[in-house]
Structure formats: structure tokens, C-alpha cells
Amino acid sequence: MDIRTLRPSDLELVCRHREEMFRDAGRRDDVLAPMTAHFREWLKPRLADGSYFGFMMSDHGVDAAGIGLMLIEWPPHPEHPTQDKRGYVLNVFVEPAYRKRGLARELMALADAEFARRGVSYAVLHATEKGRPLYQGLGWNGTTEMAKPI
């Protein structure tokens, strides 16, 4: 499996992975289509300036799995008392034909290493029900976060 960093030309691939990830989690197409259109516009400048970064795995030129990463500003917190940022993991997706091969686990290890390289000692993610066992097995824990639509 070849591994490379994300690049601006991955815009459509990342958008497709994100949409498929949410579709796989049970979200409806009437919600996903507008989300993807707005996400594409949000993502384009961030891929270009490197504020959205990550990795893509491919098998003989076939894109198999990807992960997105960001650094988010966050005030110092008991979990990271001397840092004003957190790592954020998003858009972890493995193509169906490549699942159950450890690719997501490998992507998460790459994320840990990249965050460490950038000096980040704490990271967060939002897990789908299908993804939760993987993340828990890698040492991720639930937090006290709550949410509500406004």
C-alpha cells in the first residue's frame, strides 16, 4: 500500500469520502448533497494552504483509504494545560473493498505521528457508531462534549 500526504488535487476524493462516510452512517442523500457542496467550498482553500492535511493510501494507483487532520485553536485545558491547540481527526474513510485490513488503524497511527511532529499532545474526533470500536481499541475515550442544533 502506498501512502502519501493529501494535496489540493484530492479535493473531489476527500469530498466523496466524507459523503460516503456519512451515507454509511445512515445519513440521507437530501442532507448530504448540500453538505458536500458547502464542504467542497470550505475545503478547497484549506487544502491549498495546508490547514487541512492528512494522508491517502492507494493500492497500485487505486485510492483505498484516507484521513483528514487539522489543528484547532483551543484554550489551555486540563488535558493540555500548556497548549492552545488540539489535533482534530476527521473524514476517516476506507473504501468497502479494502475494509478489515487494518488500513484505518494505520491511518490513525500516521495521525498520531503527525500530531506529535507538529507538537500537539491532545487530539479529538467525532466517531460514527461503526468507527467507535476502532477508536476505543486505540485508546480514545469519550468526553463530556454535548451538542445541540441552534
Rank of each mutant, 00 (worst) to 15 (best):
F93L: 11
V92Y: 02
Y98S: 11
V94T: 13
Y98C: 09
L103P: 08
R101A: 15
K100N: 15
R101K: 15
P76G: 12
K85L: 08
Q83M: 02
P96R: 07
Y88D: 04
V92L: 11
G87N: 01
E79L: 09
G102M: 12
Y98E: 11
K100M: 12
F93E: 03
V89F: 06
E79S: 07
G102I: 01
P81C: 04
V94I: 12
R99K: 01
V89T: 01
L90Q: 03
F93S: 10
E73P: 07
G102D: 08
G87I: 03
P78H: 01
H77Q: 12
R101W: 12
T82H: 14
D84K: 12
Q83N: 10
Y88Q: 05
D84T: 05
V94W: 03
E79A: 04
W74G: 05
K85C: 11
E73A: 15
R86N: 09
E73K: 15
K100C: 13
D84R: 14
G87W: 07
H80Q: 00
P78Q: 03
Q83E: 12
D84S: 15
W74N: 14
P78F: 08
L103K: 01
E73S: 14
G102L: 04
K85G: 08
G87S: 01
E73D: 15
P81I: 05
P75E: 14
P96E: 10
W74H: 15
A97W: 00
H80F: 07
V92S: 01
G87M: 02
E95Y: 07
R99N: 11
R101L: 14
V94F: 03
